[in-house]
């Protein structure tokens, strides 16, 4: 595997390695790393800047430390895996692929994520998420595992506000604070947990080389839009 230092090596050299597996060291706030990457594997060391892996289009990006704001913005396909925590507006408008964060996510994670045709965006947060998690969610799956926050709130305020499709799964027994009355909250049964959550969480655990069982044990709640209170009736009675 080739190793580049962002301070010494030019972009041209890295572009020649399109489709290969490379490591990029010494990152300190540089924006747009891995932006639009179609294939190959990129290991990022240091603290990459904003808009990391934005528009990611099939490539794989591993981050050793923390990610800043707007990681995986409008991502299309591929995998972003962050071993530390992510900043605000993670996976904004994501349209497909997987975003795994082992630590915490900031405010507005997964806002307006989507699913269409065979694409289904998946966001898994190992720790806790900030306020406005999954706001305006339009499709896909968000899972928050709350590791390290047992018995405490794992989301902030306004979780799932304005969502109209997709599902937010929270590994907690406490309902999020001030949940909108346009949302329903239900417990997740064994079958749904096995069929939907287990494959995703097993993949999450294997990416970070941690035991899957510690990520999946315990009970989950699911939050979804209440179809009987459709937003289509908000402005015009049909």
């Amino acid at each position: 595997m080739k190793v580049f230092d962002i301070r010494n090596n030019g972009l041209e050299e890295m572009r020649k390695c399109s489709g290969e597996e490379i490591t990029l060291t010494g990152c300190l706030g540089e924006r747009y790393i891995g932006c639009g990457m179609k294939d190959g594997i990129l290991h990022v060391e240091g603290t990459p800047g904003n808009a990391l892996a934005s528009y990611l289009d099939g490539g794989t990006v591993y981050v050793d430390g923390n990610a800043q704001d707007a990681a995986a913005d409008t991502m299309n396909a591929g995998l972003l895996a962050v071993k530390g925590s992510a900043g605000d507006a993670l996976a904004y408008g994501m349209r497909g692929g997987r975003v795994y964060v082992l630590g915490d996510a900031g405010y507005r994670a997964g806002v307006h994520m989507k699913a269409y045709e065979e694409h289904r965006s998946i966001l898994v947060i190992g720790g806790r998420a900030g306020s406005f998690l999954g706001e305006y969610l339009a499709g896909g799956i968000i899972i928050v595992l709350g590791m390290g926050y047992e018995g405490r709130s794992i989301t902030g305020y306004f979780c799932g506000n304005g969502m109209y499709a997709g599902t937010i799964y929270l590994r907690t027994e406490t309902e999020p604070l001030n949940l909108s009355d346009k949302l329903i909250r239900r417990s997740v049964g064994e079958k749904e947990k096995e069929d939907i959550l287990r494959p995703i969480i097993t993949d999450f655990a294997s990416v970070f080389s941690i035991p899957a069982e510690q990520c999946i044990e315990g009970s989950f709640i699911a939050i979804e839009a209440d179809k009987s209170k459709s937003y289509s009736q908000l402005y015009a009675a049909v």
Binding site: G29, G46, T47, G49, N50, N66, D69
Partner: peptide
């Protein structure tokens, strides 16, 4: 941005 802190303190006790 976190990077602006890491630039002067590589290894904070808490961030």
């Amino acid at each position: 941005e976190e990077a602006a802190i890491r630039a002067i303190e590589k290894d904070p006790d808490r961030i």
